[in-house]
Nucleic acid binder design. Structure first.
Lengths: 137, 137
DNA sequence: AAAGTTTGTGCAACTGAGTTGCAAAGTTAT
DNA sequence: ATAACTTTGCAACTCAGTTGCACAAACTTT
């Protein structure tokens, strides 16, 4: 029972069960986004449905956000401290086509999109594909 | 046997079979992108696998391009005349959260993305979600 | 035009991600 | 401690996408 994890969960109004602490630890250790199938593999013996619902809960409580990077599986990554995952918090995601890792590029702002005047903008999803710094070496 | 469809297929080096002409017609009639399951429903009795392979062929021969709009199903739309679906042809896609239709906003250019210097950019996928002009009425 | 080769189609079966119902186990409140 | 609610684990299922295989259709060669 790591008091740090405990605190983090509570601060987002998530009951800190053992399962949830383990999942949060994996998310922290990982510095790229992770999919449900990948998360499953991090555990010897874990139930897909439980992990699924854990991720859903985390997302609902805005501890993590999800990314559709076009790999077929939705990935999840920790939100940053002040992030509420609202329109103004949107950032670019980068998918490496070599190692298949997805990075949150928090420092890059999504540029303004000018839609046709009769379209109403709600959110923006920007995924850049390429080679990450690790794979370029 | 529509000679127009025939010509269009041949111009992209695709053998103009009856099946392919039918699929192409659907794609032309549609002014939004269409998914494989949606395409299936356009036919009384059509084989999923055949439609699947037809779309794959069309895409390979650059008659259509695919869009990952985060709805869970990949959608396909006709490429424009001179489009070769290379980096410079990339455009924004718009997903209406009311009617679930996906539009190609060809007129909107994807703004420049400045990646960290050790990342290599290959392609950009930008999906904007919101309400389309039809649903706003 | 017939024979042989290549390409396309239809069917069935399967994979893999995501999702749900339900009962047992765990947690919280009274 | 009991009751009420929440979380977990298991099984089963959905749905998009994909593949193998045999048959059909279309091209090629002679």
């Amino acid at each position: 029972m790591n008091p740090e994890l405990d605190k983090k969960l509570k601060s987002k109004n998530i009951r800190p069960t053992a399962m949830r602490q383990l999942v949060l630890q994996v998310l922290i250790d990982q510095n790229t986004a992770i999919s449900l199938p990948e998360l499953e593999q991090k555990f010897e013996k874990a139930d897909k449905a439980t992990l699924y619902r854990t991720l859903k809960t985390f997302e609902e409580k805005r501890l993590i956000h999800h990314i559709e990077d076009g790999t077929g599986a939705v990935k999840y990554a920790l939100c940053h401290e002040k992030c509420n995952c609202h329109l103004e918090d949107l950032h670019v995601h980068f998918l490496c086509t070599k190692c298949n890792q997805t990075y949150c590029l928090d420092e890059i702002q999504i540029p303004d999109i000018k839609l046709p005047s009769d379209f109403l903008l709600e959110s923006v999803n920007l995924v850049v594909k390429g080679i990450c710094s690790n794979c370029k070496k």
